Amino acid sequence: MDFTIIATATFGLEKVVAQELKDLGYDDLTIENGRVIFEGDEMDIVTCNIWLRTADRILIRMAEFKAESFEELYQGTLAVEWGDIIPITGYMHVTGKSVKSKLFSVPDCQSIVKKAVVDAMKRKYRRDLFPETGAEYKIEIGILKDVATLTLDTSGPGLHKRGYRENAGEAPLKETLAAALVLLSKWNPDHQLADPLCGSGTIAIEAALIGRNIAPGINRSFVAEQWEIIPQDLWDDVRSSARNLINNKSFRILASDIDTRVLRTARDNAEKAGVSDNIAFQKLDVRDFSSKKKYGYIITNPPYGERLGEVSYVEELYKTMGKTFQELNSWYYYVLTSYEGFEKYFGQKSDKNRKLYNGRLLCYYYQYFPKNDK
């Protein structure tokens, strides 16, 4: 079956997701705010769920139409052949959102959509009641500026849920964003990589997964695995192929932090992810970080100073980072923070920066290059 597939993305990461898709062999991509759209089939749904590192979810777009009234919303939803995907026993779970639209009551929109979906199912199966005791089919009605988009979620829990991070610390960085930071840096395992403020280790772990070519979704499940239209053999084949593509490159990422507790969590996470042999964890103050390697990369996500009383601490921390990192003048270093005065306290204007969102928090990804690479 052919589908219009949407890989959703955090704002600012759309082009990163698109590049991942191109690397997987997809073309004719449409990049929009928060999503990349392309055509595909069941195999593509499986492949993208298992392999994409920076996308949030993989959705099937069922319909898109103008809806300025409940009748238009109902008729547009009714026109979809939901029974082609959802079986008689399917659990039809409707969620919704509305932005700058005449139909602003999300609960009412959800009710209208659910009624229309059930009526379409009645048309397909010629019956009035559906037990909804089977696999989940999460339908979302999203209305933006009076344009309604109906989607089916194939992922279930977001794609950042790799399965290795049960404990995340106080201010977790999503795995998808951490992977994006690494991909944007263009790091590869032939060069040293360090995170001297590693926290629960997410950046180092995602980098190790990239370095070993380990598919991020290889060890988790997806809601569409329970769907009748996607044979289990497809999931088994893609996972088997992914395992065969894992390499055994020898490299060691340096991950350090001053907090013993979070380092213990980081080690546990790396063990669960299967990359503990590729990461050297160490208790170390950032001021004491150094390396004998002439060339390398630092990628880090330091505290932002969001909490009351933390501003003076992060300002001193950024000063320390600036002095420490600038000693490594032939290294690349990349810092994600929401603190607007970062460059001032770091003591150096970035060569490049990029707007990214950590959750709902607007951040900048400050990028510093060696003098001979500017």
Rank of each mutant, 00 (worst) to 15 (best):
T154I: 04
E228P: 00
N33V: 04
G12F: 07
D27R: 12
F289R: 03
K352Y: 15
A7R: 00
Y334V: 03
K102H: 12
Y295V: 09
D288N: 14
T89F: 12
D285G: 07
P302F: 09
A178F: 04
S312H: 11
P172H: 06
K371L: 13
K371M: 11
L356D: 02
V262R: 15
E306V: 08
P107T: 02
G211A: 06
I37Q: 07
I86R: 10
D108S: 13
K371N: 12
Y304P: 03
L59G: 02
F281M: 05
K174P: 10
I229Y: 04
G322W: 00
Y137T: 01
M62W: 04
N219A: 12
I58L: 08
E71T: 12
Q282T: 12
Y313Q: 10
L361A: 02
L254V: 09
L197H: 01
E39D: 13
R360G: 14
L73D: 01
K122C: 13
G12S: 05
K161Q: 14
S185T: 05
D2L: 14
D128Y: 09
Y26E: 11
G83D: 04
D2P: 06
T47I: 14
P107Q: 08
D285Y: 07
A273V: 05
K283Q: 15
E39P: 02
T260Q: 15
K374R: 15
Y364V: 02
G359H: 09
F346N: 03
L29H: 04
A273S: 10
R212T: 13
A204D: 05
R126L: 13
V94P: 09
N248F: 12
P107A: 03
K66N: 14
Q348P: 06
S241E: 15
G158F: 03
Y368C: 06
I279E: 10
V311A: 13
S330E: 15
L263N: 08
V113F: 00
D190S: 13
K122E: 11
A280L: 14
A79F: 08
S240H: 14
F369D: 04
Y365N: 03
I253G: 07
T47M: 14
L103M: 09
V80T: 04
L254A: 08
Y334G: 06
M43N: 15
L317M: 11
E132K: 03
T337W: 10
L317N: 06
G96K: 00
G142A: 13
T154G: 02
R239I: 06
E316W: 07
Y313C: 01
F3V: 02
D195C: 03
V17C: 02
G134P: 08
N219M: 11
S200V: 05
V94H: 11
G274Y: 02
K272I: 10
Q326H: 12
G156Q: 00
E225K: 09
N49C: 03
D268V: 07
P189A: 12
V335W: 01
A194H: 02
L361T: 08
K115Q: 13
K138F: 07
L73V: 02
R35G: 10
R162Q: 10
A67P: 05
D237V: 06
R243H: 14
V335Y: 01
V223P: 06
E64W: 00
I279C: 10
V262D: 12
Q192D: 10
Y366V: 00
